[in-house]
Design a protein around this nucleic acid. Structure first.
Lengths: 148, 148
DNA sequence: ATGCCTGCAAAGCTTTTGCAGATGC
DNA sequence: GCATCTGCAAAAGCTTTGCAGGCAT
């Protein structure tokens, strides 16, 4: 949480950068869009522009502090790049995102890349499905349709 | 290539739709952006608007005729939804896309979804790496750096 | 003939950029 | 003090939408 990470990345320790880092750390969601971070800042009465949020996030990404994902819906989301690689499983109804790692899959990917003459730099595996949470919008929608 | 697919999808058989289908079929690249299709139409002296390209592709997607991907760079690409599921491996330098299927990975995904209480509807696995083609931009860039 | 399509232009959304002033070191 | 950073506003890029006319059936 201190500015060390920032300094290490060659970035000056400024209030906007600290605040944005803090929001990413404190978030229970792990994956935030620029807009969500921006609104979060406004809620905290921080006077930080949306452009700055984008600029800072881009700098953080370049510095390896955060990872940017696209989850197939046109809007980027960011997450703290803390530690190990992982893949994502996303509920197409409620947007809930969970993470997982599977050694077998990782192994197979290496083999496949080699077969195709590629050198893997990274990859993203996103499973889309419906979660079974009782409060998932899909279930409500389903119920609504049934009662038509 | 005939209009049957269109009619089956509840869409009238029109020249723009046929032309766009044809471009998707004839393309050697398999994955085309709206813009690329649009330019391709212009080259063929077809007077079809970019808006129509987007509308038609969206309709095709809804009809299951094409699949839309996002490949992590903000611009959507479309491919003919011909036949079986497959995943993608993309060169981060030249944009070349290859396809693959791996039974083991598919199996593991099912297991993972179940562990997390998800019902899979679809998934996308995209490996990013560098291909080994001699004409890949990355190689040129690398050479340029080396000679500085 | 009628209702589905299309082209054009304008708007919408996310993201980027230019510039003058502010801030960290 | 100087370079870096920020806020604002404007621009840019991709995609969608409204509307009036056109085409398939």
């Amino acid at each position: 949480m201190e500015g060390k990470d920032l300094r290490k990345a060659g970035l000056k320790v400024t209030l906007p950068r600290l605040k944005i880092l803090e929001i990413l750390e404190r978030s229970s969601t792990r994956h935030l869009s620029a807009e969500e971070i921006y609104r979060s800042l406004i809620v905290s009465s921080e006077d930080i522009g949306l452009a700055t949020v984008y600029r800072v996030l881009t700098q953080f990404e370049a510095a390896g502090l955060v990872a940017r994902h696209h989850f197939e819906d046109g809007m980027a989301v960011f997450e703290l790049a803390q530690g190990a690689h992982h893949d994502h499983i996303v509920c197409i109804d409620c947007g809930q995102v969970e993470e997982f790692v599977d050694a077998d899959i990782e192994k197979r990917q290496d083999a496949i890349a080699q077969q195709h003459g590629f050198r893997i730099s990274e990859h993203s595996l996103i499973i889309h499905g419906r979660c079974q949470r009782t409060d998932c919008p899909h279930r409500k929608a389903k119920a609504a349709v049934a009662s038509r």
